[in-house]
C-alpha cells in the first residue's frame, strides 16, 4: 500500500517535471546569488556553512510545502475513502525524504562548484545531510498538512515550520563545523545521536497525529 503510494507520487512527479525542475532552478539561482553576493571569491568556511544551511532550509520548506498545499480538494476525499491516513503520511514522508535528499546533495554539489569545498570529512557530512533531510521531511510534512487546511497557507507554512526545524538546523550546523575543522568523528557522536532521536520523535508523532488532521 505504502509502496504503491510512493510510486504514485514519483510517477506524478516525473510526469509533471515542472515542480522538480522549478526547485532545481530555485536552488541554482540561490547558490548563484550567494556566489555573486560574496563577490565571486572563495567564501570563508563559517559563511559557507551558514549559506549552505539557509539555502537548504528554504529549498526544503518549498519542496515539502507543496506536498499537501498543492493538492486539489477532490483528491483528498478520494484518497480518504480508499487508504488509511497512516499509509498516506508514511508514503509522503518517504517521498519527501527522497526529494529533500536529492535536492540537498544537488545543493552540496553546486556549493562545491561555485563556492569551493571547505569540508574535510565528506562522509560524515553526507550522513548529516541525509539525517537532516529526514528530519526536515518528517516534521515539515505534518506541518504542511496543517497549513493546507488554513486559508493563508503559504505564509502559515513558513511561520509554523521555521521555529520547529531550528533545532535540527542547529545540530546540523554544529556537525558541519566539526566537519570543516576536520575534528575526529567521535566529537560529533552526541549530535548525531540527538539528531537521530529528534527524527524518530518527529516521525512517531507525525504518524500518531496525522489521522486527526486528515479527518477534518
Amino acid at each position: 500500500m505504502i509502496l504503491t503510494l510512493i510510486k504514485k507520487e514519483i510517477n506524478l512527479e516525473i510526469r509533471r517535471k515542472t515542480v522538480i525542475s522549478g526547485l532545481l532552478v530555485y536552488l541554482v539561482s540561490t547558490v548563484f546569488i550567494s556566489y555573486i553576493a560574496f563577490g565571486f571569491k572563495v567564501v570563508e568556511p563559517i559563511s559557507w556553512s551558514a549559506l549552505f544551511w539557509i539555502t537548504l532550509l528554504f529549498t526544503t520548506v518549498n519542496t515539502v510545502a507543496k506536498s499537501f498545499i498543492g493538492e486539489k480538494k477532490g483528491k483528498d476525499i478520494y484518497f480518504y475513502s480508499i487508504v488509511s491516513p497512516e499509509a498516506i503520511i508514511v508514503s509522503k514522508i518517504c517521498y519527501n525524504f527522497l526529494l529533500c535528499g536529492i535536492l540537498s546533495f544537488a545543493g552540496f554539489a553546486f556549493f562545491v562548484l561555485f563556492l569551493s569545498n571547505p569540508i574535510n570529512d565528506a562522509f560524515l557530512f553526507c550522513i548529516t545531510i541525509l539525517l537532516s533531510a529526514l528530519g526536515f521531511a518528517s516534521s515539515l510534512t505534518l506541518l504542511s498538512g496543517i497549513a493546507a487546511k488554513a486559508s493563508n497557507s503559504t505564509i502559515l507554512m513558513a511561520v509554523l515550520s521555521f521555529p520547529v526545524i531550528i533545532s535540527i538546523l542547529l545540530l546540523s550546523i554544529k556537525i558541519t563545523k566539526n566537519c570543516i575543522d576536520g575534528l575526529d568523528r567521535s566529537a560529533s557522536y552526541d549530535e548525531l545521536t540527538i539528531l537521530t532521536a529528534i527524527n524518530c520523535l518527529s516521525i512517531a508523532f507525525s504518524y500518531l497525529l496525522f489521522p486527526y488532521i486528515w479527518r477534518s
Binding site: 520547529v164 531550528i166 540527538i194 529528534i198 518527529s202 477534518s216
Partner: peptide, 25 residues
C-alpha cells in the same frame, strides 16, 4: 484539532530545544 496537533508536535520539539541542546555546549 489542528491547534491540538501543532501544540503536541511543537512541545516535542520545545523540550529538547530548551533542556537538552543547551546542555551540550
Amino acid at each position: 484539532r489542528l491547534a491540538a496537533v501543532y501544540n503536541i508536535f511543537s512541545y516535542t520539539v520545545f523540550i529538547p530545544l530548551i533542556y537538552i541542546l543547551p546542555r551540550m555546549t
